[in-house]
Amino acid sequence: HAATELTPEQAAALKPYDRIVITGRFNAIGDAVSAVSRRADEEGAASFYVVDTSEFGNSGNWRVVADVYKA
């Protein structure tokens, strides 16, 4: 099962156990969220919340930071 994305309210009520950072070329924010979901799932997380997204220069590469939560 894939890790689910939390709302800001849900994330605020929970304590993350880790923070992950992924970088890559994403065509849309949805693609980045899917990549975070896969990584969170690999780490055994039940859910995640994207904290920050930023573009690296003009290369089209993105850096996505997310907190991950157990259950």
Rank of each mutant, 00 (worst) to 15 (best):
V64F: 03
A71G: 10
S37K: 15
I20P: 00
T7K: 07
I29R: 13
E43N: 09
P8W: 14
S47W: 15
F56S: 09
W62K: 04
E9L: 10
V50K: 01
V33P: 00
W62D: 00
A32C: 08
Y69W: 00
A13F: 13
G24M: 05
S34W: 09
D67K: 03
A46P: 05
P8R: 14
Y17V: 02
A11K: 03
S34G: 11
R39L: 12
E9M: 09
Q10W: 06
S54V: 12
G57Y: 06
G60A: 05
V50M: 07
I29D: 05
I22V: 11
F56A: 07
V51C: 04
T4R: 13
Q10E: 11
I20L: 07
V21G: 01
V21R: 00
V33M: 13
A2E: 10
E42H: 08
N61S: 09
E5T: 04
H1S: 11
A40L: 06
A71H: 11
S34N: 13
N27H: 11
A45W: 15
E5Y: 06
A12C: 11
V36N: 01
T53D: 02
D31P: 03
V36I: 12
D41W: 15
R38H: 11
A13G: 11
F48A: 00
V51R: 04
V33G: 03
K70M: 11
D18P: 00
A11H: 04
V65L: 05
R19D: 00
G57S: 09
P8L: 12
T53P: 01
T4A: 05
T23G: 02
Y17I: 04
G44P: 04
F26A: 00
T53V: 15
V21A: 03
S34M: 14
E42P: 00
G30S: 14
S47K: 04
A3Y: 03
K70H: 13
E43Q: 12
A40S: 02
F26V: 02
N58V: 11
R38G: 07
T4E: 09
S54K: 14
S59V: 08
N61R: 09
V64S: 00
R38Y: 11
G24L: 06
G24I: 08
G30C: 13
V21W: 05
D31S: 06
A32P: 01
R25A: 09
A71I: 13
L14H: 09
A2Q: 13
A66K: 01
E42A: 12
D52E: 15
V21Y: 09
A12T: 08
A71Y: 12
D41F: 15
K15D: 07
A32K: 02
N27E: 12
T23N: 07
D67C: 09
D41C: 15
W62S: 02
R39I: 12
A71V: 10
A3F: 05
T4K: 14
N61E: 15
A45L: 05
S59L: 10
E43W: 13
W62T: 04
P8A: 15
I20A: 00
G30F: 09
A11L: 02
A2L: 12
F48W: 04
A71L: 11
D31Q: 07
L14F: 09
D67L: 15
G57D: 13
A66S: 02
Y49W: 07
E5H: 09
P8Y: 15
N58D: 13
R19N: 00
G24T: 03
N27G: 11
D18W: 08
D31W: 12
V36T: 04
A71T: 13
A32F: 07
V36K: 01
V21T: 09
P16N: 03
E55A: 09
G24Y: 04
G30T: 13
E5Q: 13
R39H: 06
A46N: 13
D31V: 06
T23H: 10
L6D: 03
S54L: 12
G60Q: 06
G44H: 06
P16I: 03
H1R: 09
G44I: 04
V33C: 09
L6S: 01
R38P: 02
T7Y: 04
A40N: 04
R38K: 13
V36H: 02
Q10M: 07
V36D: 01
Y49G: 02
T4Q: 11
Y69C: 03
G60V: 06
E42I: 10
A3I: 11
L14Y: 07
T4I: 14
R38T: 10
A32E: 01
A66N: 01
S59F: 09
A3C: 08
K15A: 07
D18H: 11
V65T: 09
V50P: 02
R63P: 00
R25Y: 13
G60H: 06
A45S: 03
F26Q: 01
L14D: 04
A2D: 07
L6A: 02
V65S: 03
K70Q: 07
D18Q: 13
G44R: 04
R25W: 14
V33T: 07
A13E: 11
D67Q: 05
V68Y: 06
T23S: 08
Y17M: 04
I20V: 06
T4S: 10
A40K: 02
I22E: 01
I29H: 10
F26C: 07
S47T: 05
V65R: 02
